[in-house]
Amino acid sequence: MPLPRALLLDLDDTILDAHRNPDEAWIGVCREFAARVGAPSPEALHTAVLQSRDWFWADAERSRRGRLAMEGTRREIVRLALGRLDLPYSPAAEAMADRFTELRHKAIKLFPDATDTLQRLKDSGVRLGLLTNGNSAYQRGKIARFGLEPFFDHIQIEEEFGVGKPDERAFRNALSLLDAEPKDAWMVGDNLEADILGAQQVGIHAIWMDADRAGLPDGTGVRPDRIIGSLSELLS
């Protein structure tokens, strides 16, 4: 398949290995802080955290607000978890949430083929757009940390633009600035609703990044136009 005129890419878990396997970090944090926050056991604390996390992110509006203030969101998840255990929120609880944020930030890394693929796409004349949801400072920090800005003709962050994926305005604005029509563009991302369904609703060829190669989750009604396990597959 020939390359498109324009290619929109998600950032986290598409270019950066950022949010996969968070349970490992939570397990370590719960072991470190269980006694300090008064939890009956690290296991009980971990279970409460996961229940609170899943509840928080299940709602679209909470998710939108939460991703614009991730540090505060993680503190809120810990507060909710402690509430499930009838425990008060305390300075130790805040330190627990911040420790998780610290560990997750340190764990972020580029996927091995990311920068080489971006360079080859750019050298091929494809107009590249980075389309990411979230907080401006947090996302800009990652872009700078990994030297990604030079690869892109347009970078669009939810907080800066005012709306994020899957809102069609986010996709249409990015394509307009890349001088491309939906039929001449691809979108690559790991989120089936925000990246894939959002792109398909405006007529963009939507490619799902399945870095774990786990396949589509049971029960999803979203059907990507293509599934890849690494960015380099875009070149084949």
Rank of each mutant, 00 (worst) to 15 (best):
L3K: 03
A6T: 05
L8S: 00
L8I: 03
L11M: 10
L11D: 03
D13Q: 04
D17Y: 15
N21G: 08
N21I: 14
A34R: 11
A35H: 10
R36V: 15
P42N: 14
E43D: 15
A44R: 15
L45D: 07
L50I: 14
L50S: 12
S52G: 06
W57S: 00
R65C: 13
M70S: 11
T73P: 02
V78H: 08
A81S: 05
A81N: 03
G83M: 15
G83Q: 15
R84Y: 09
Y89L: 11
P91A: 13
D98T: 03
E102D: 13
R104K: 13
R104Y: 02
K106S: 14
I108T: 04
K109I: 09
P112T: 10
P112K: 04
P112M: 06
A114C: 10
Q119M: 10
S124M: 07
R127K: 12
G129P: 05
N133S: 11
G134L: 03
G134F: 10
A137V: 05
Y138L: 12
Y138R: 04
R140G: 05
I143Q: 02
G147F: 09
L148S: 06
A170K: 02
F171A: 00
D179A: 15
P182D: 13
D184W: 14
V188R: 02
G189S: 02
A194D: 11
G198F: 01
Q201G: 08
Q201Y: 01
V202M: 13
D212E: 13
R213M: 05
P217M: 13
P217D: 08
P217T: 09
D218S: 14
D218Y: 14
G219P: 02
V222K: 00
R226D: 03
R226L: 12
I227C: 02
G229K: 03
S232A: 10
S236H: 12
